[in-house]
Design a protein around this nucleic acid. Structure first.
Lengths: 344, 344
DNA sequence: CTGAAAGCGCTTACAG
DNA sequence: CTGAAAGCGCTTACAG
C-alpha cells in the first residue's frame, strides 16, 4: 500500500540502510547521501512503517496510559482530561504516542497482561492507582518501565509524580484554624486511594498540631465526585442533629473541588450559609472553583503539569533502563477565595 | 525478553504454525493440538508479540482517536470523557486498542500524516471535527477507514455517527413556543462546528415554523464551555438594554449544558430569575444538568453510546473494506425540568 | 561513510 | 489437520 524504504532507496540511489540512517537522524551519514534521501522523502511526506520499525528496533515509542477500574467512574472528573492533556502534550514533543486503556472491572487483569506480555508499549503510566492495586506488582515483576500518578505508600521501587497531599491538606486546615474556626470537619476522599488517604491524615494532624483531637463524627467520606460530596455533607449535617451531638461544624475541608460543589449544594438546600454559617475549602483549584457560589478557597495542584512530568519521567526510565526509581513531588498553592470568609 | 511462539511450539510438541492457529482461534485445528497448546499457553498467560503480529498480518488492531486542535480546549467539557469511555469500552469488547491524539495547532498536520503514512492504526475516529477540517480530506485521499463523530456537511463519502441536532433543537424551541414564550433567544455553539451550526438552524426554523422572524439581536455565540455561556448571556442582556431594543428575552435555548450553567450564572448575577423572568434550556443532559439551580430542561444525547457506535462502525469499515459510507443518527430525548417553568 | 545481509516474531499461502 | 518456509518492512551489527 504505502511506500517502503526500498523504493525510497532506489529513487535516491542509495541503499535501504542509508535511507534508514537518514530517517533516524543518525550522525554518520554524508551530507550528500542525506540530501539525496531527503529530496525524495520530504515531498512524499514519507514515514517508515511504524510496526516494522518497532519490531526491528525492539521498541515501539508507544506508552500506555492505564486508568484503573475503580477510578474509571471518576472519569467524569475534570482531573483526568487535564492529566491526559499533559501526557499527550509531552508525548507529542518527544515523538511518542499514547495508547489509552480504561480498565474495566472484569477486564483489568486481562488488559494488563496483554499490555505487559505483548509488547505494545515501551512503558506505562498508571493514573490514580488504588493503594492496593495488584497491577503495580505485575508491572514490577515484569520489569515494565512505569510511573504512577500518585505516590505508592510502601513500595519504593515505584516511580511516581505526586503533590504533597499530606502537607498541603495540613496547611489549609491550619489556615482554617488560624481564622478561628474550631469545629472543622472533613469530607475525605476514598480511603483506598492514596490522595484520599494523605489528605485525610493532613487534616487530622493539623488538628493535633493545635492540640485538638479529631472527632470521627466530623469525618465523612466521598468518592471525589459531586454527588459523593453532596451525600457526605448530608451525613455530616444529620450527625450534627443527633441527640448528644455538639452541633454543626463551623468549617469543612473537602478533599476535592468536585465534592465541594456537591457539599455547597447540600448546604444551600439546608439553608446553611457559606461562609457565614460554615466555611468550605476544596482541593484541586479546578477551573470552576473560582465560579462556585461562593467562590471556593482551595488547594491548587498542577494537574496538567503532573501529566507532562509523568510522561517525561517515563521516557527517561524507558531510555535509561538503569535509572533508579524517581519520586517527584510537584508544588501546590493555597488559593484563598470567599468560601472561607474573614474568619471568626 | 518474552517467550516466542517458537518456545511454546517446542514445549507443546507442535509447530509454530499450529500455535499461531490456536492462538488466533482458527477452525481447522485438531482438538488434541489445541489442548496441547493451551496447556502450555494458559498457565504462562502467554500473549504473542503484538508488533510482529501486526507486521505479518498487515493489521494492527489499533484505532486512532483524534481530537482536533480547535476543540482540544473543549477537553474540559465532560463530553469528551464520555465519548472516550464509549469508544474504549467497544474497543475492549472487540479486542482493539486505542491510540489517542489531541492534535495541537502546529502539530496537527504532522500528526495526521504520521498516522496515515506509518500504519500505526487500522482506522481513525475523528471527534468533533471543524466543518472545514482539512484532516478529513487527507484521510479520504489516503483511503484510511475513518468515522467522524458529528456529520459531515457536504462530503458523502464520510461515515459518521451523530444525533439529529437540527430537529432536536427545533423540537425543544417548539416546546418553548408552545409554553407561550415569545422572545426566544439562543446561545449558539461555534458556527464552524457542525453541531453548533445545526442546532442554530433548528432554533431559527422553529421560529419560522411559527411565522416568526429570527432576530439577530437574540442570537449570541459561545464556545460550548461555561465561560462562553456566561459571556454570551451578558451580551444578550446588554443588547436588551440598548436604546430601541425590545426588552429582555423571555426564554433562551442554549446549545450546551456547559454554556447553560454559565448563562444561569450570568442571570443570577443580574438578578434575573429562572424560569420566572426567563426560561432556560440546555443541550446534552450532562450529569450535572439535573442539579443546576434550577434543574435544566435539556436535550439528552447518548454520548457514551455515540462513542461505542462510532468504534463499532469503524471496526466494520476496517474489516469489510467495501462497506459503503455509514451515516448513523442516534436518538435524542427532550428532558423537561424546572428551568422552563409551567409556561406563560 | 556505506551496503549486503541477518534478524526482529509473527502469519499464511503452499504442499502434503 | 499440520509443518516448512517465505515474507511482512524495518534496524543494525558487520565488513569494507
Amino acid at each position: 500500500m504505502s511506500l517502503r524504504l526500498e523504493e525510497i532507496a532506489q529513487e535516491a540511489g542509495v541503499s535501504r540502510s542509508t535511507v534508514s540512517r537518514v530517517l533516524n537522524k543518525e550522525p554518520h551519514v554524508s551530507a550528500r547521501a542525506r540530501e539525496r534521501v531527503l529530496a525524495v522523502t520530504q515531498p512524499l511526506n514519507f514515514h517508515p512503517n511504524a510496526t516494522a520499525r518497532s519490531l526491528a528496533a525492539g521498541r515501539t515509542r508507544n506508552i500506555g496510559l492505564v486508568i484503573p477500574v475503580a477510578v474509571s467512574s471518576l472519569f467524569t472528573d475534570p482531573y483526568f482530561p487535564l492529566l491526559i492533556q499533559g501526557i499527550t502534550s509531552a508525548c507529542n514533543t518527544h515523538d511518542y504516542s499514547v495508547m489509552l486503556w480504561l480498565a474495566d472491572v472484569e477486564q483489568e487483569r486481562q488488559i494488563i497482561s496483554k499490555i505487559t506480555h505483548s509488547g505494545m508499549v515501551d512503558g506505562v503510566i498508571v493514573a490514580s492507582a488504588l493503594m492496593d492495586d495488584p497491577m503495580v506488582q505485575v508491572l514490577l515483576e515484569d520489569h515494565i518501565p512505569f510511573v504512577q500518578v500518585g505516590r505508592h505508600p510502601t513500595d519504593e521501587r515505584v516511580s511516581y509524580v505526586d503533590v504533597d497531599n499530606y502537607n498541603s491538606a495540613k496547611e489549609v486546615v491550619g489556615y482554617l484554624l488560624r481564622l478561628g474556626y474550631r469545629r472543622v470537619a472533613t469530607i475525605a476522599g476514598p480511603h483506598n486511594m492514596i490522595a484520599g488517604h494523605d489528605r485525610r491524615r493532613g487534616y487530622q494532624d493539623a488538628l493535633r498540631a493545635r492540640g485538638m483531637i479529631p472527632d470521627p463524627a466530623l469525618i465523612a467520606e466521598g468518592d471525589f465526585l459531586e454527588d459523593g460530596g453532596f451525600v457526605a455533607m448530608q451525613q455530616l449535617l444529620a450527625r450534627a442533629r443527633q441527640p448528644g451531638a455538639n452541633g454543626l461544624p463551623d468549617a469543612v475541608f473537602v478533599a476535592s473541588d468536585m465534592m465541594a460543589t456537591g457539599a455547597l449544594r447540600a448546604l444551600r438546600d439546608a439553608g446553611i450559609r457559606v461562609p457565614g454559617d460554615m466555611a468550605v475549602v476544596g482541593y484541586d483549584d479546578m477551573p470552576f472553583a473560582a465560579r462556585t457560589e461562593p467562590p471556593l478557597t482551595t488547594v491548587r495542584q498542577p494537574i496538567h503539569r503532573a501529566g507532562a512530568v509523568a510522561a517525561e519521567t517515563l521516557f527517561e526510565l524507558i531510555e535509561n533502563p538503569n535509572t533508579p526509581p524517581r519520586r517527584i513531588i510537584l508544588p501546590t498553592e493555597l488559593v484563598i477565595r470567599a468560601s472561607t470568609g474573614p474568619g471568626v
